[in-house]
Amino acid sequence: MKIAYYPGCTLKTTAKNFETSAIAIARELGIEMVELPRWTCCGTVFSLTADDLIHHVAPIRNLIRVQEMIENGQIEDEKRVLTLCSMCFNTLKRSNLRVKENTEDLKKINDLMYREKDYRAEIEVIQLLELLKEIGFDKLKAKAKNPLKNLRVAPYYGCMILRPIEVGIDDPEDPTIQKDLLEALGAEVIDNPYKKVCCGSYQTVNNKEKVAELAYNILGHAQQEGAEAITTCCPLCAFNLDTRQKEVLKNHPDFQQMPVFYITQLIAVAFGLDNKTFGFNQNYVDPKPLLKKKGLIK
């Protein structure tokens, strides 16, 4: 099945490994992710003030591209666009909801973009985890030639796929979607209350010390519960939890570094896919020693 796919800027650069692993596992499940032509940055954060429509232009412009793909018969899933990045998902979905609920806003945005065809507000924005759940975690289990046995993983959800409630893909207080998925793949899942606590997000630009402290709490609590690795589906959470371990180590010399996976990387490992699709060279903390120790990769 062909589905429209919105990547987002970071998936083309520092989170390229998220994209390559996602495309590989989707292919394995019979899904072809067709990238939007001429997509633009979604803006990464939703415009929160009532009168600020200009920041909805980018998300809606991208949804017009999806509409065009459907009209041109380029994709088979005729109502949805797939996102991987949590922040892109949140931004696109919330803008979409706003114009679905507010036809006056939709008209204003369409009028501003008079060079584009009008957006009809019929598209739905979904995140990869939702699509995988729809396919069925039992199907993923059947594909897992290389089950993640003895690997103790703590899923980390962050904010953007959980909150606000109208956008979230799972219970905002006790999400389980990653846990269900990882258990199906044979991993030992470590639950901990920090799985939904903010990593500090864009504060990493001007307040990296605070972000490092938040990362220390999130990683430290997972470790206390026995986790050996963390999973996420947000390139900014990944940066703050993975790359900022450098700063964590500076402030807490006894801190034990731990790998941070994109959930798709672990699925690709479980599926026993070609190791080129993993993209581990882009992870700051090298996950290969852990996976080797567990006999999951050679």
């Binding site: 987002g8 922040m87 630009v205 390139p235």
Partner: peptide, 26 residues
Amino acid sequence: VEIKKIPKYELVSLPQIAIVSACRKF
């Protein structure tokens, strides 16, 4: 936050997603 005043070595170490959202918020 004046993004032009952030040291260049810091800027290049950050992912796009961080810079774009910081621009929006700050």
